Amino acid sequence: MNQEKVRELLDEALQENQSLYLIDLQFLANSKIKVIVDGDSGVPLNECMRISRKIEHNLDREDEDFSLEVTTPDIAHALTVKRQYKKNINRILKVKTATEEFEGTLSEATDQSITLCWKAREPKPIGKGKHTVEKIMTLLYQDISEAKVKIIF
């Protein structure tokens, strides 16, 4: 399998729609190619088909038989690309670092970090009881070991 040719064809297909971006490209056993793409506003099925055709129609099955799967990340897939964070602003994320876990609403995503906001109950500074406080945490991408969108039904 000419992996470089597949990468070139995939790049060409993604350049035709600038709102799409690559999440993962895998060359698996038995000549299986798996492409995972995402988009700033989601990925319509016809875009997955267009990308698949762009790759498949420009490779020669006479030389090597292969299977090709073009898909989008599933709901359990962790966020891996900075553009995915920007796409999910105002959604609840579960974020793990090496030492802690956070769950909050993604309020900002820059090129270096993300900002999460959430409410917590804490003891009052004076007197008995608890009060609700708003927490804000900024995390650098390099410190995030895993981030997933929390799905609420």
Rank of each mutant, 00 (worst) to 15 (best):
N2K: 08
Q3S: 08
R7D: 03
E8R: 07
D11L: 10
E12W: 11
E12N: 09
A13H: 12
L14M: 04
N17A: 08
N17E: 13
Y21E: 06
Y21H: 01
L22F: 02
L22V: 01
I23Y: 04
I23R: 06
D24L: 08
D24M: 07
L25Q: 10
Q26E: 12
A29P: 06
I33P: 04
I33L: 01
K34M: 10
V37C: 00
D38G: 09
D40Y: 03
S41N: 04
G42M: 04
L45A: 12
E47W: 11
C48S: 14
C48I: 14
M49N: 10
M49V: 15
M49K: 12
M49T: 12
K54H: 05
K54V: 02
I55G: 00
E56S: 12
H57I: 08
N58I: 14
D60V: 14
R61C: 07
E62Q: 12
E62I: 11
D65L: 09
F66I: 09
F66P: 02
L68A: 03
E69W: 06
T72C: 04
P73V: 06
I75R: 01
I75A: 05
H77G: 12
A78C: 04
L79F: 06
V81L: 02
R83D: 04
K87R: 15
K94Q: 02
V95D: 01
V95W: 00
K96E: 15
T99H: 11
E101G: 11
F102H: 14
G104L: 06
T105P: 01
E108R: 13
E108N: 10
E108G: 04
A109D: 00
T110V: 11
D111W: 07
S113Q: 08
S113K: 09
I114T: 03
W118F: 00
K119D: 12
K119V: 05
A120N: 12
P123Q: 14
P125A: 04
P125E: 09
I126M: 11
G127W: 14
K128L: 11
G129M: 10
K130C: 02
K130S: 09
V133H: 03
K135P: 13
K135A: 11
I136L: 15
I136W: 15
